[in-house]
């Protein structure tokens, strides 16, 4: 199966290990990976700040870059949800709306793709450690992907899983919210970190670069002995 990787700008610049793990994992599962160099950002930072005009430029580039792909897969729930939102953004635009719709229909978040398209529930991974998982708001509420990551994690050998209390609560990232409303964001991420600590887990696993940047950054700042991992890294470990 041919997969075109939408790596996301955060992974491209700050979390290249996540990108590598995604490529290796998908290849191991029998996919052929392509990474179009022309990919930019999905436009979400500008779109969510009210700069719709500016964000549309990025969206158009992304549509052009990915529209010939068979499947587009991304290791980020929020960025995938943004692709799925494109037809709504271009509603009424006779040229871009149909193109956006075509792209949205073949775009999947990584775990969603593995479970729903590849129909694989056990990727044959082995990971020793006590973990908990952050569900991410856009992944669960906008993309409606909640069970796929759980299914995949459940089948990882050696992994000890504890459910995160208050898992449906936002971690306080929210893109520019994290800096524009820093004082509120701080309270939210602190409550999230407190819940992670309550589980006694050594690893917090996520499937969204933004949330991980936020939670990880706060954990690092407050010196907690908890490691942040992307689900691709866990599923790729043998």
């Amino acid at each position: 199966m041919k997969v075109t990787l939408f790596a996301t700008c955060l992974v491209d610049m700050f979390q290249s290990d996540v990108g590598k793990a995604t490529v290796e994992l998908l290849e191991r599962l029998g996919c052929e990976i392509d990474f179009p160099e022309a990919q930019v950002c999905c436009g979400q930072p500008a779109y969510n700040s009210g700069y719709v005009k500016e964000s549309k430029e990025a969206m158009k580039r992304m549509i052009e870059t990915f529209e010939n792909a068979e499947y587009v897969v991304s290791p980020s729930g929020s960025c995938t949800a943004m692709f799925r939102e494109y037809p709504h953004v271009f509603k009424g635009d006779s040229i871009w709306e149909p193109r956006a719709l075509k792209l949205a229909e073949k775009t999947y978040e990584l775990t969603q793709f593995i479970v729903d398209v590849l129909k694989i529930e056990d990727v044959g991974a082995r990971f020793e450690g006590k973990v908990t998982y952050h569900t991410s708001c856009h992944m669960t509420r906008l993309l409606r992907v909640a069970s796929a990551p759980m299914t995949l994690l459940k089948n990882v050998n050696g992994l000890e899983f504890t459910m995160l209390p208050g898992k449906e609560q936002c971690c306080g990232f929210g893109g520019t919210f994290s800096v524009k409303m820093g004082q509120i964001s701080e309270q939210m991420v602190d409550e999230k970190v407190m819940h992670i600590e309550e589980t006694g887990a050594d690893y917090i696993i996520g499937a969204d670069a933004g949330c991980m940047l936020n939670i990880g950054g706060r954990i690092q700042r407050t010196g907690k002995p908890i490691q942040v991992l992307h689900i691709a890294e866990v599923l790729n470990s043998r």
């Binding site: 700050f14 590598k20 524009k180 940047l213 950054g217 700042r221």
Partner: peptide
């Protein structure tokens, strides 16, 4: 990590660390 970021990163790093950009971007690795 970046602990005291400039510009828009300042507000971020008042609360949390920001990762240093990867020396080798994912696209270069690929």
């Amino acid at each position: 990590k970046i602990s005291k970021g400039p510009g828009p990163l300042k507000a971020w790093t008042e609360i949390r660390e920001f990762p240093a950009p990867n020396k080798e971007r994912f696209r270069d690795w690929f």
